[in-house]
Write a protein that binds this DNA or RNA. Structure first.
Lengths: 404, 404
DNA sequence: GTAGAATAATGCCAGTTTATTTATTGAATA
DNA sequence: TATTCAATAAATAAACTGGCATTATTCTAC
């Protein structure tokens, strides 16, 4: 349904054109290579309008004519596609233990990669310096190639004001109010987009992963925290102070154990990575039989995965249990939103199948029949590259949106 | 941010005009009486465009020129307002124990009311007949007055397909697949809108209640079930099978008591009206001291309210406890969505203050600090009239939306 | 010749710009 | 005090223009 317009954007010629231009550009991106006539058909625009707008896109160099398509009894159609090499884009995923970055063309094809490790509790200026250095590693060859840099996208875990481009707070790094956009725009002189971690992943999945064919979905990242991002009509849903999505701090057990947030029985107390490792350690301390008893050094997520892969029943049980808890949280989301798809990110999902299976089973059991029938719960399509890819997508989005 | 257009509505002249027309109409409705010059200012449209479109609205009779405004050193502005008496609208709230209906003008001013009681477990055709009869009671005088009937809105508890206008399932009435739109359009020969109960209430609040000044909010109805409706940009958010909003069936207690849905520890098991009455009865059975011990007949919500008002400590404790449970469910919503406002409907909220206060306190305690600071949780502004008013709004919405 | 792709020429809708009319205030003047 | 006349603001008329729509034409293949 068309949204209620109240005091929204009014119609004008420039606006109408920018909308149509954006629609055509997106059709070429998604369905290309595609001839003009086909664009006219799917967009309901008239052929002359398409020709006119495509002309401007060709002039701008964002679109190129490539091959001729097959004729079915008439002139061969001239296929149009995005000129992927018109720009390069840099995407950075600024995590807690490392900074990962990639450069890509307009189709999201990988052009370069860089990674810098971050020690625990980094100094503020060191962390910023690391981000800048990582980007420089990728920017240098781009500059050298002569291809223009369209922009830089940054996905950063924690609380982010994407409008101002500020990392408001990143608890696991103990850093606050880093004006990343300003810092990076000054350093690199290109537009910078900054977004929260899960929302960055969600945009990556929307364009290049499991969200491609679907306008509305929910993306959930499971790590030391559990966060959700809501995608509606291919766009992120925002909230007043950008804090929506705190799935990890929804109560699933009224009188449950205390959580770091001060509340009781938060999903994060049961379903996060740290919670899982803690539960495994408790089991071992209570004398459970497991190969993990022979493990040296502190228990970790990775160690649990390894043990589970090698057949350790206890490790698997811990993973299955974690999946069950997460399934309860996701069943709540299924009942509350009736989404068509939930995309799951994080090592807990991508590294071993046990969590996912148990989670899916729990949702089947606990959520209502009708919404369960609508939803598919899938692991992220981009896996470990999701972060940088998502950050690249943040920049691409701007190019493909109506300008002004 | 402008939404990503993918294959959305393309820009055309008709579309542009219908958007601008709708914007102007809404500005007149919300800010009227208002002169043309002021409309131009707030919408950013040029004065001639406003004059032109207002001309059409005047011709159509939806808008009228009323008084002259105060001059501040120039020609007095001609104030425009919605011609409220251009149409009548009928709104019906089809509940479990009664059908309530009202007729109103375009400003939502009450013109007539009707109510028909429904006995338990009504026959399908009896129920449909009752709805039709109720509407006839209001339609007759409208027909007599000669004022055209714009349409009929129906809010119906349970699962509704608003696109087809079908009540898919109403568990508490044990009725299924009632094609209300078809039935009523055939009977009354005017457009009919059918919508789910909470979503109907939400639209009423959005236009005439606590949602007037706010584009995004969440409306929660607490009764024998607990349901939510999400409003984004003044419009309802929809989901694949129209089942979004099942807040009552989100788990708040992993190993909690069984719920009718088959799951455990659903919010509804703790926070609904029936759950509250059940808990009170359990307390009494266990010998709690209360004036309720002297009450004759079965315990009910109403009896509890009365006892609480008269100072019964146990009754108040039961209400406070219910508020606490509901607060946990709402804290989850606050963390998950970071909404600016939550509007609460239902007797539990409107009849006594204890539930609301306890609920608000619980949310303050249990939700995260940042989203809590953004949200205000308020009782519905329309109270017991919310249902029929919301149903009226369903019809008004269509008039004020862009046509086609 | 026919069919389909692409485009050129023209039309026309609807917002924009510019100028004009109408109506009021208020200060200067008689 | 009454009259005149800028100044100001609302509303509209006239002319302009941007951009989609319609129609006709060209191009290329079957």
């Amino acid at each position: 349904m068309t949204p209620m317009p109240r005091t929204m954007q009014t119609g004008s010629f420039r606006w109408m054109k920018s909308i149509n231009k954006s629609i055509i550009l997106n059709v070429i991106r998604e369905k290309g290579p595609i001839p003009r006539a086909e664009i006219a058909k799917v967009t309901q625009l008239t052929p002359p309008t398409v020709t006119n707008i495509v002309g401007e896109l060709l002039d701008a160099g964002i679109v190129v004519e490539s091959d001729l398509g097959e004729s079915t009894g008439g002139r061969k159609p001239i296929l149009l596609r995005i000129n992927a090499s018109a720009f390069s884009v840099i995407g950075v995923y600024a995590g807690v233990d490392k900074i990962r970055a990639m450069s890509a063309d307009l189709d999201g094809n990988l052009e370069g990669e860089a990674e810098v490790p971050i020690p625990p509790n980094p100094d503020r200026s060191f962390y910023i310096r690391s981000i800048i250095d990582t980007i420089h590693q990728l920017a240098a060859p781009i500059h050298h190639s002569g291809r223009p840099l369209l922009g830089i996208g940054v996905g950063m875990s924690g609380w982010v004001d994407h409008e101002q481009g500020i990392s408001l707070s990143c608890p696991s790094l103990n850093l606050r109010n880093i004006p990343l956009r300003d810092l990076l725009e000054r350093e690199f002189s290109v537009p910078v987009e900054v977004e929260n971690g899960v929302r960055t992943l969600a945009m990556g999945e929307s364009w290049f992963g499991e969200g491609r064919e679907i306008a509305d979905f929910i993306c959930v990242h499971i790590g030391n925290e559990v966060n959700a991002a809501f995608v509606k009509e291919h766009s992120l849903v925002y909230s007043p102070s950008f804090t929506a999505g705190e799935l990890g701090h929804t109560t699933v057990d009224i009188e449950g154990p205390l959580c770091g947030c001060g509340n009781r029985g938060c999903l994060e107390v049961f379903g996060s990575s740290v919670a899982m490792v803690r539960r495994a350690q408790e089991g071992l301390d209570q004398g459970v039989i497991s190969s993990l008893n022979h493990h040296e050094g502190p228990l970790s997520e990775r160690v649990l995965f390894e043990a589970a892969r090698e057949g350790d029943e206890f490790a698997r049980a811990v993973l299955v249990d974690t999946g069950r808890y997460l399934g309860i949280g996701l069943a709540n989301i299924v009942n509350l939103f009736n989404p068509r798809r939930i995309i799951l990110c994080g090592d807990l999902i991508s590294e071993v199948p046990y969590v996912l299976h148990s989670l899916q089973e729990t949702v089947e059991q606990r959520a209502l029949a009708t919404p369960v029938a609508d939803v598919t719960i899938v692991p992220a399509g981009l896996g470990r590259n999701g972060g940088p890819m998502g950050a690249v997508t943040l920049v691409l989005m701007k190019l493909f949106q109506p300008q002004h």
